[in-house]
């Protein structure tokens, strides 16, 4: 499987990263090199193997349903690049 330029653009769009035309070619060859490297996994027989998704082998711990956080709007907003009052602000979205 090797990536064409259109796929590189589609992936960049999915990842919300703007790429210039000049970058597409470089990215294409770099990404193909990485994909070429991982291609070796094809030779591993994984029949009947349960995929391992996490680093820890335990069951999920849960917490009590208690109000223990929030009420810190000033801190939540302190790093915001743009805001309107106590709201975050972004360029206008047309739905």
């Amino acid at each position: 499987m090797s990536l064409d330029a259109a796929t590189v653009r589609r992936i960049a769009r999915l990842a919300r990263i703007r790429v210039d035309d000049a970058e597409v070619e470089t990215l294409q060859s770099e990404l193909n090199a990485i994909l070429g490297y991982v291609e070796q996994l094809a030779e591993v027989n994984v029949e009947g193997v349960t995929p391992l998704s996490g680093g820890a082998q335990m069951a999920l711990r849960s917490r009590e349903d208690q109000l223990s956080d929030g009420g810190i709007a000033d801190k939540i907003l302190a790093n915001a690049p743009d805001r309107v009052g106590h709201f975050f602000a972004v360029p206008k979205v047309v739905e």
């Binding site: 349903d65 929030g70 009420g71």
Partner: peptide
């Protein structure tokens, strides 16, 4: 652990976890 109640002043029922801050992790409510 932030309030799940409807309403509230803007961004008042929000923890760093809810706002997706770096390094914040989810812990499930039983």
């Amino acid at each position: 652990g932030a309030s799940a109640t409807y309403g509230g002043a803007p961004n008042d029922h929000v923890s760093f976890v809810d706002a997706g801050f770096p390094g914040m992790l989810p812990v499930i409510n039983r």
